[in-house]
Design a protein around this nucleic acid. Structure first.
Lengths: 192, 192
DNA sequence: AAGAGCATGTAACCTGTTACATGATTAT
DNA sequence: ATAATCATGTAACAGGTTACATGCTCTT
Protein backbone atom coordinates (compact mmCIF):
# COMPACT_ATOMS: atom_id res chain seq x y z
CA UNK A 1 0.00 0.00 0.00
CA UNK A 2 1.63 3.18 -1.16
CA UNK A 3 1.03 6.80 -0.29
CA UNK A 4 -1.34 7.16 -3.23
CA UNK A 5 -3.68 4.47 -1.96
CA UNK A 6 -3.64 5.83 1.55
CA UNK A 7 -4.42 9.34 0.34
CA UNK A 8 -7.34 7.81 -1.49
CA UNK A 9 -8.38 6.12 1.74
CA UNK A 10 -8.28 9.36 3.67
CA UNK A 11 -10.25 11.08 0.95
CA UNK A 12 -12.85 8.32 1.26
CA UNK A 13 -13.54 9.80 4.70
CA UNK A 14 -13.93 13.32 3.44
CA UNK A 15 -12.57 16.04 1.21
CA UNK A 16 -9.18 17.51 1.91
CA UNK A 17 -6.25 19.36 0.42
CA UNK A 18 -2.68 18.09 0.37
CA UNK A 19 -1.76 20.12 3.40
CA UNK A 20 -4.60 18.59 5.38
CA UNK A 21 -3.61 15.08 4.36
CA UNK A 22 -0.08 15.65 5.59
CA UNK A 23 -1.44 16.61 8.97
CA UNK A 24 -3.59 13.54 9.07
CA UNK A 25 -0.64 11.34 8.31
CA UNK A 26 1.12 13.03 11.19
CA UNK A 27 -1.66 12.65 13.69
CA UNK A 28 -3.43 9.41 12.77
CA UNK A 29 -0.58 7.38 11.35
CA UNK A 30 2.34 9.05 13.05
CA UNK A 31 3.70 5.88 14.64
CA UNK A 32 3.47 3.52 11.71
CA UNK A 33 3.35 5.46 8.48
CA UNK A 34 4.85 8.70 7.30
CA UNK A 35 4.56 10.73 4.15
CA UNK A 36 6.01 14.08 3.16
CA UNK A 37 4.75 16.70 0.73
CA UNK A 38 7.14 15.28 -1.79
CA UNK A 39 5.04 12.16 -2.02
CA UNK A 40 1.60 13.51 -1.20
CA UNK A 41 1.35 16.22 -3.84
CA UNK A 42 2.49 14.02 -6.71
CA UNK A 43 0.16 11.29 -5.43
CA UNK A 44 -2.81 13.67 -5.57
CA UNK A 45 -1.86 14.81 -9.04
CA UNK A 46 -1.70 11.18 -10.20
CA UNK A 47 -5.03 10.35 -8.59
CA UNK A 48 -6.66 13.33 -10.26
CA UNK A 49 -5.22 12.40 -13.63
CA UNK A 50 -6.54 8.86 -13.39
CA UNK A 51 -9.98 10.01 -12.34
CA UNK A 52 -9.86 8.67 -8.81
CA UNK A 53 -10.41 12.12 -7.35
CA UNK A 54 -11.81 15.43 -8.48
CA UNK A 55 -10.19 18.71 -7.63
CA UNK A 56 -11.83 22.02 -6.86
CA UNK A 57 -9.75 25.13 -6.33
CA UNK A 58 -10.65 27.53 -3.57
CA UNK A 59 -8.86 30.85 -4.12
CA UNK A 60 -7.48 32.54 -1.04
CA UNK A 61 -6.02 35.88 -0.10
CA UNK A 62 -2.23 35.82 -0.14
CA UNK A 63 -1.89 32.03 -0.26
CA UNK A 64 -1.90 29.59 -3.12
CA UNK A 65 -5.41 28.41 -3.88
CA UNK A 66 -6.56 25.60 -1.65
CA UNK A 67 -7.00 22.58 -3.87
CA UNK A 68 -9.75 20.52 -2.40
CA UNK A 69 -9.84 16.95 -3.53
CA UNK A 70 -12.89 14.71 -3.38
CA UNK A 71 -12.97 11.02 -4.15
CA UNK A 72 -14.97 9.78 -7.12
CA UNK A 73 -16.95 6.59 -7.42
CA UNK A 74 -14.07 5.12 -9.42
CA UNK A 75 -11.70 6.09 -6.63
CA UNK A 76 -13.89 4.44 -4.03
CA UNK A 77 -14.01 1.24 -6.00
CA UNK A 78 -10.29 1.31 -6.46
CA UNK A 79 -9.70 1.77 -2.77
CA UNK A 80 -12.05 -1.04 -1.83
CA UNK A 81 -10.38 -3.32 -4.27
CA UNK A 82 -7.00 -2.39 -2.78
CA UNK A 83 -8.32 -3.26 0.69
CA UNK A 84 -9.55 -6.58 -0.61
CA UNK A 85 -6.65 -7.72 -2.72
CA UNK A 86 -3.46 -6.25 -1.33
CA UNK A 87 -2.00 -8.12 1.55
CA UNK A 88 -0.67 -5.54 3.91
CA UNK A 89 2.88 -5.47 5.20
CA UNK A 90 4.08 -4.71 8.69
CA UNK A 91 7.78 -4.05 8.81
CA UNK A 92 10.17 -2.76 11.37
CA UNK A 93 13.44 -1.27 10.23
CA UNK A 94 15.73 -0.54 13.10
CA UNK A 95 19.28 0.68 12.78
CA UNK A 96 19.04 1.06 16.52
CA UNK A 97 18.82 -2.69 17.10
CA UNK A 98 21.59 -3.26 14.60
CA UNK A 99 23.75 -0.89 16.61
CA UNK A 100 22.83 -2.68 19.80
CA UNK A 101 24.01 -5.87 18.19
CA UNK A 102 27.39 -4.21 17.85
CA UNK A 103 27.30 -2.88 21.41
CA UNK A 104 30.67 -4.39 22.20
CA UNK A 105 32.28 -2.05 19.71
CA UNK A 106 30.54 0.95 21.21
CA UNK A 107 31.91 3.31 23.77
CA UNK A 108 30.07 2.78 27.05
CA UNK A 109 28.90 6.39 27.35
CA UNK A 110 27.72 6.39 23.81
CA UNK A 111 25.79 3.19 24.39
CA UNK A 112 24.14 4.60 27.48
CA UNK A 113 23.16 7.75 25.62
CA UNK A 114 21.64 5.73 22.82
CA UNK A 115 19.65 3.63 25.26
CA UNK A 116 18.51 6.62 27.31
CA UNK A 117 17.40 8.48 24.22
CA UNK A 118 15.52 5.52 22.89
CA UNK A 119 13.75 4.85 26.17
CA UNK A 120 12.67 8.50 26.31
CA UNK A 121 11.40 8.33 22.78
CA UNK A 122 9.37 5.23 23.46
CA UNK A 123 7.97 6.68 26.67
CA UNK A 124 7.16 9.93 24.90
CA UNK A 125 5.45 8.06 22.09
CA UNK A 126 3.42 6.03 24.55
CA UNK A 127 2.48 9.17 26.44
CA UNK A 128 1.52 11.31 23.49
CA UNK A 129 -1.11 8.81 22.44
CA UNK A 130 -4.10 9.96 24.38
CA UNK A 131 -6.94 7.59 24.94
CA UNK A 132 -9.45 10.04 23.58
CA UNK A 133 -12.82 8.40 24.03
CA UNK A 134 -14.52 10.46 21.30
CA UNK A 135 -12.46 9.06 18.47
CA UNK A 136 -13.58 6.15 16.33
CA UNK A 137 -12.98 2.57 17.44
CA UNK A 138 -10.52 2.13 14.56
CA UNK A 139 -8.55 5.14 15.73
CA UNK A 140 -8.46 3.76 19.23
CA UNK A 141 -7.43 0.37 17.97
CA UNK A 142 -4.42 1.54 15.99
CA UNK A 143 -3.41 4.07 18.63
CA UNK A 144 -3.65 1.41 21.30
CA UNK A 145 -1.46 -0.89 19.25
CA UNK A 146 1.22 1.76 18.94
CA UNK A 147 0.98 2.55 22.61
CA UNK A 148 1.31 -1.10 23.58
CA UNK A 149 4.38 -1.54 21.42
CA UNK A 150 6.05 1.62 22.65
CA UNK A 151 5.43 0.70 26.26
CA UNK A 152 6.78 -2.80 25.79
CA UNK A 153 9.82 -1.49 23.95
CA UNK A 154 10.66 1.02 26.67
CA UNK A 155 10.17 -1.54 29.38
CA UNK A 156 12.29 -4.10 27.59
CA UNK A 157 15.16 -1.69 27.19
CA UNK A 158 15.08 -0.72 30.83
CA UNK A 159 14.88 -4.30 32.02
CA UNK A 160 17.54 -5.70 29.73
CA UNK A 161 20.06 -2.99 28.98
CA UNK A 162 22.39 -4.44 31.56
CA UNK A 163 22.90 -7.42 29.25
CA UNK A 164 24.82 -5.31 26.77
CA UNK A 165 26.06 -2.45 28.90
CA UNK A 166 28.58 -4.82 30.39
CA UNK A 167 29.94 -5.55 26.92
CA UNK A 168 30.57 -1.98 25.86
CA UNK A 169 34.07 -0.61 25.72
CA UNK A 170 35.39 1.61 28.47
CA UNK A 171 37.72 4.39 27.38
CA UNK A 172 40.77 2.44 28.51
CA UNK A 173 39.93 -0.71 26.58
CA UNK A 174 39.76 1.16 23.33
CA UNK A 175 42.26 -0.98 21.42
CA UNK A 176 40.81 -3.23 18.78
CA UNK A 177 40.48 -6.86 19.57
CA UNK A 178 43.23 -8.53 17.64
CA UNK A 179 41.07 -10.89 15.70
CA UNK A 180 41.04 -11.32 12.00
CA UNK A 181 44.73 -10.98 11.42
CA UNK A 182 45.62 -12.18 7.96
CA UNK A 183 43.77 -15.45 8.37
CA UNK A 184 41.18 -16.01 5.72
CA UNK A 185 40.35 -19.46 7.05
CA UNK A 186 38.75 -18.08 10.19
CA UNK A 187 35.36 -16.88 9.12
CA UNK A 188 32.20 -15.37 10.55
CA UNK A 189 30.65 -18.76 11.08
CA UNK A 190 33.31 -19.90 13.47
CA UNK A 191 32.97 -16.77 15.53
CA UNK A 192 29.29 -17.04 16.17
CA UNK B 1 22.76 3.20 8.56
CA UNK B 2 22.62 1.59 5.17
CA UNK B 3 23.30 -1.93 3.99
CA UNK B 4 26.90 -1.00 3.22
CA UNK B 5 27.65 0.00 6.79
CA UNK B 6 25.99 -3.08 8.21
CA UNK B 7 27.91 -5.37 5.88
CA UNK B 8 31.03 -3.66 7.17
CA UNK B 9 29.85 -4.32 10.70
CA UNK B 10 29.30 -8.00 10.03
CA UNK B 11 32.71 -8.21 8.40
CA UNK B 12 34.18 -6.66 11.55
CA UNK B 13 33.17 -9.91 13.25
CA UNK B 14 34.82 -12.14 10.68
CA UNK B 15 35.38 -12.80 7.01
CA UNK B 16 32.47 -13.75 4.82
CA UNK B 17 31.21 -13.80 1.26
CA UNK B 18 28.06 -12.10 0.02
CA UNK B 19 26.04 -15.26 0.28
CA UNK B 20 27.04 -15.69 3.91
CA UNK B 21 26.12 -12.11 4.72
CA UNK B 22 22.67 -12.60 3.28
CA UNK B 23 22.15 -15.54 5.60
CA UNK B 24 23.31 -13.52 8.55
CA UNK B 25 20.89 -10.75 7.73
CA UNK B 26 18.21 -13.40 7.65
CA UNK B 27 19.09 -15.02 10.92
CA UNK B 28 20.44 -12.22 13.11
CA UNK B 29 18.49 -9.25 11.85
CA UNK B 30 15.48 -11.02 10.42
CA UNK B 31 12.94 -9.09 12.47
CA UNK B 32 14.27 -5.59 12.10
CA UNK B 33 16.46 -5.35 9.03
CA UNK B 34 16.45 -7.02 5.66
CA UNK B 35 18.75 -6.94 2.69
CA UNK B 36 18.68 -8.79 -0.58
CA UNK B 37 21.50 -9.78 -2.93
CA UNK B 38 20.61 -6.76 -4.99
CA UNK B 39 21.89 -4.53 -2.23
CA UNK B 40 24.55 -6.72 -0.66
CA UNK B 41 26.68 -7.45 -3.71
CA UNK B 42 26.87 -3.85 -4.88
CA UNK B 43 27.62 -2.84 -1.29
CA UNK B 44 30.58 -5.23 -1.12
CA UNK B 45 31.87 -4.00 -4.46
CA UNK B 46 31.71 -0.41 -3.22
CA UNK B 47 33.41 -1.27 0.03
CA UNK B 48 36.21 -3.04 -1.82
CA UNK B 49 36.64 -0.12 -4.17
CA UNK B 50 36.97 2.34 -1.32
CA UNK B 51 39.47 0.18 0.53
CA UNK B 52 37.20 -0.71 3.44
CA UNK B 53 37.48 -4.42 2.70
CA UNK B 54 39.86 -6.72 0.87
CA UNK B 55 38.66 -9.52 -1.32
CA UNK B 56 40.19 -12.93 -1.82
CA UNK B 57 38.77 -15.33 -4.35
CA UNK B 58 38.46 -18.97 -3.48
CA UNK B 59 37.88 -21.00 -6.65
CA UNK B 60 35.39 -23.84 -6.43
CA UNK B 61 34.31 -26.80 -8.51
CA UNK B 62 31.21 -26.02 -10.55
CA UNK B 63 30.30 -22.82 -8.70
CA UNK B 64 31.39 -19.24 -9.10
CA UNK B 65 34.49 -18.54 -7.02
CA UNK B 66 33.72 -17.75 -3.42
CA UNK B 67 34.73 -14.14 -2.85
CA UNK B 68 35.82 -13.84 0.71
CA UNK B 69 35.85 -10.34 2.06
CA UNK B 70 37.86 -9.20 5.07
CA UNK B 71 37.66 -5.82 6.70
CA UNK B 72 40.70 -3.53 6.61
CA UNK B 73 41.90 -1.17 9.31
CA UNK B 74 40.34 1.69 7.32
CA UNK B 75 37.07 -0.22 7.27
CA UNK B 76 37.17 -0.78 11.00
CA UNK B 77 37.74 2.90 11.64
CA UNK B 78 34.95 3.82 9.30
CA UNK B 79 32.56 1.47 11.05
CA UNK B 80 33.48 2.76 14.48
CA UNK B 81 32.99 6.30 13.34
CA UNK B 82 29.59 5.33 11.94
CA UNK B 83 28.64 3.84 15.31
CA UNK B 84 29.72 7.01 17.05
CA UNK B 85 28.27 9.66 14.80
CA UNK B 86 25.15 8.30 13.13
CA UNK B 87 22.06 8.49 15.20
CA UNK B 88 20.17 5.33 14.52
CA UNK B 89 16.57 5.19 13.40
CA UNK B 90 13.85 2.84 14.50
CA UNK B 91 10.86 2.92 12.23
CA UNK B 92 7.76 0.88 11.86
CA UNK B 93 5.96 0.94 8.54
CA UNK B 94 2.68 -0.85 8.70
CA UNK B 95 0.15 -1.01 5.92
CA UNK B 96 -1.59 -3.46 8.16
CA UNK B 97 -2.42 -0.82 10.76
CA UNK B 98 -3.47 1.57 8.03
CA UNK B 99 -5.89 -1.09 6.79
CA UNK B 100 -7.17 -1.61 10.30
CA UNK B 101 -7.88 2.09 10.46
CA UNK B 102 -10.16 1.54 7.48
CA UNK B 103 -11.74 -1.54 9.02
CA UNK B 104 -15.22 -0.15 8.57
CA UNK B 105 -14.78 -0.34 4.81
CA UNK B 106 -13.57 -3.92 4.98
CA UNK B 107 -15.64 -7.00 4.54
CA UNK B 108 -15.99 -8.76 7.87
CA UNK B 109 -14.51 -12.06 6.66
CA UNK B 110 -11.62 -10.28 5.07
CA UNK B 111 -10.95 -8.38 8.28
CA UNK B 112 -10.99 -11.57 10.32
CA UNK B 113 -8.59 -13.23 7.90
CA UNK B 114 -6.21 -10.31 8.09
CA UNK B 115 -6.28 -10.35 11.87
CA UNK B 116 -5.89 -14.12 12.09
CA UNK B 117 -2.96 -14.07 9.70
CA UNK B 118 -1.25 -11.29 11.54
CA UNK B 119 -1.69 -12.92 14.91
CA UNK B 120 -0.19 -16.15 13.53
CA UNK B 121 2.72 -14.25 12.10
CA UNK B 122 3.44 -12.52 15.37
CA UNK B 123 3.14 -15.76 17.30
CA UNK B 124 5.36 -17.54 14.80
CA UNK B 125 7.93 -14.75 15.01
CA UNK B 126 7.91 -14.90 18.80
CA UNK B 127 8.26 -18.66 18.72
CA UNK B 128 11.02 -18.88 16.16
CA UNK B 129 13.28 -16.77 18.33
CA UNK B 130 14.86 -19.38 20.53
CA UNK B 131 16.51 -18.28 23.71
CA UNK B 132 19.75 -20.01 22.80
CA UNK B 133 21.98 -19.55 25.79
CA UNK B 134 25.22 -20.00 23.85
CA UNK B 135 24.77 -16.87 21.74
CA UNK B 136 26.31 -13.54 22.63
CA UNK B 137 24.56 -11.15 25.04
CA UNK B 138 24.01 -8.73 22.16
CA UNK B 139 22.30 -11.43 20.14
CA UNK B 140 20.10 -12.28 23.08
CA UNK B 141 19.31 -8.65 23.64
CA UNK B 142 18.11 -7.92 20.12
CA UNK B 143 16.34 -11.26 19.82
CA UNK B 144 14.61 -10.66 23.13
CA UNK B 145 13.48 -7.25 21.98
CA UNK B 146 11.92 -8.70 18.85
CA UNK B 147 10.30 -11.46 20.84
CA UNK B 148 8.84 -9.00 23.33
CA UNK B 149 7.38 -6.85 20.57
CA UNK B 150 5.93 -9.79 18.65
CA UNK B 151 4.34 -11.19 21.79
CA UNK B 152 2.82 -7.85 22.74
CA UNK B 153 1.56 -7.31 19.22
CA UNK B 154 -0.13 -10.72 19.05
CA UNK B 155 -1.66 -10.28 22.46
CA UNK B 156 -2.92 -6.81 21.65
CA UNK B 157 -4.62 -7.99 18.49
CA UNK B 158 -6.33 -10.84 20.28
CA UNK B 159 -7.46 -8.67 23.15
CA UNK B 160 -8.69 -5.75 21.08
CA UNK B 161 -9.85 -7.05 17.71
CA UNK B 162 -13.42 -6.92 18.91
CA UNK B 163 -13.16 -3.12 18.88
CA UNK B 164 -13.02 -3.07 15.09
CA UNK B 165 -14.66 -6.35 14.16
CA UNK B 166 -17.96 -4.81 15.09
CA UNK B 167 -17.36 -2.02 12.57
CA UNK B 168 -16.65 -4.19 9.56
CA UNK B 169 -19.20 -4.58 6.81
CA UNK B 170 -21.32 -7.67 6.56
CA UNK B 171 -22.12 -8.91 3.07
CA UNK B 172 -25.60 -7.45 3.18
CA UNK B 173 -24.44 -3.96 4.16
CA UNK B 174 -22.22 -3.75 1.13
CA UNK B 175 -23.64 -0.51 -0.24
CA UNK B 176 -21.47 2.53 0.13
CA UNK B 177 -22.29 4.94 2.87
CA UNK B 178 -23.91 7.87 1.16
CA UNK B 179 -21.55 10.48 2.41
CA UNK B 180 -19.62 12.91 0.36
CA UNK B 181 -22.27 13.51 -2.22
CA UNK B 182 -21.45 16.61 -4.21
CA UNK B 183 -20.80 18.67 -1.13
CA UNK B 184 -17.36 20.19 -1.08
CA UNK B 185 -18.04 22.10 2.10
CA UNK B 186 -18.12 18.98 4.21
CA UNK B 187 -14.51 18.07 4.74
CA UNK B 188 -12.35 15.52 6.51
CA UNK B 189 -12.03 17.69 9.58
CA UNK B 190 -15.71 17.68 10.26
CA UNK B 191 -15.91 13.94 9.99
CA UNK B 192 -13.28 13.16 12.54
C1' DA C 1 12.96 -36.33 -11.43
C1' DA C 2 12.38 -32.24 -8.87
C1' DG C 3 13.58 -28.91 -5.77
C1' DA C 4 16.57 -26.72 -2.50
C1' DG C 5 20.97 -24.86 -1.73
C1' DC C 6 25.34 -22.79 -3.22
C1' DA C 7 27.33 -18.69 -5.53
C1' DT C 8 27.82 -14.68 -8.40
C1' DG C 9 26.12 -10.51 -10.30
C1' DT C 10 23.38 -6.59 -13.31
C1' DA C 11 19.76 -3.45 -14.74
C1' DA C 12 15.53 -1.52 -14.64
C1' DC C 13 12.33 0.07 -11.62
C1' DC C 14 9.78 1.90 -7.78
C1' DT C 15 9.23 4.85 -4.05
C1' DG C 16 10.16 7.96 -0.95
C1' DT C 17 13.38 11.76 0.93
C1' DT C 18 15.59 16.21 0.79
C1' DA C 19 16.34 20.50 -0.76
C1' DC C 20 14.75 24.15 -3.18
C1' DA C 21 11.42 27.98 -4.51
C1' DT C 22 7.64 31.33 -3.01
C1' DG C 23 5.15 34.24 0.10
C1' DA C 24 1.33 36.12 3.10
C1' DT C 25 -0.77 35.76 7.76
C1' DT C 26 -1.02 35.00 12.57
C1' DA C 27 0.67 34.22 17.05
C1' DT C 28 4.47 35.03 20.56
C1' DA D 1 10.73 41.12 15.47
C1' DT D 2 10.63 36.29 14.98
C1' DA D 3 8.78 32.05 14.43
C1' DA D 4 5.12 29.11 13.24
C1' DT D 5 1.33 28.10 10.20
C1' DC D 6 -0.86 28.00 5.87
C1' DA D 7 -0.35 26.38 1.02
C1' DT D 8 1.55 24.90 -3.29
C1' DG D 9 4.76 22.37 -5.91
C1' DT D 10 9.43 20.51 -8.53
C1' DA D 11 13.79 18.21 -9.28
C1' DA D 12 17.55 15.74 -8.05
C1' DC D 13 18.90 12.07 -5.38
C1' DA D 14 19.25 7.89 -2.59
C1' DG D 15 18.28 3.51 -1.63
C1' DG D 16 16.30 -0.75 -1.88
C1' DT D 17 13.38 -4.39 -4.55
C1' DT D 18 12.48 -7.41 -8.31
C1' DA D 19 13.47 -9.76 -12.15
C1' DC D 20 16.77 -11.55 -14.93
C1' DA D 21 20.94 -14.45 -16.17
C1' DT D 22 23.83 -18.73 -15.14
C1' DG D 23 24.75 -23.38 -13.60
C1' DC D 24 26.47 -27.18 -10.60
C1' DT D 25 25.52 -30.28 -6.52
C1' DC D 26 23.12 -32.41 -3.05
C1' DT D 27 18.95 -34.05 -0.99
C1' DT D 28 14.22 -36.05 -1.28
Amino acid sequence: MDVKTICLGLLSLGDACGYDLKKHFESLFRHFFSAGYGSIYPALADLAESGMVRCQELPQQGRPARKIYSITELGREHFRSALLTQNPTHKLRSDFLVMMYFADQLDRNRLQDLLDQRVSQFRAAAGEIETAAETSPQSQFVAGFSRALATTAAQYLEDNRHLIEGEAQTLSTRSYRNKNTHEVAMNLEERL
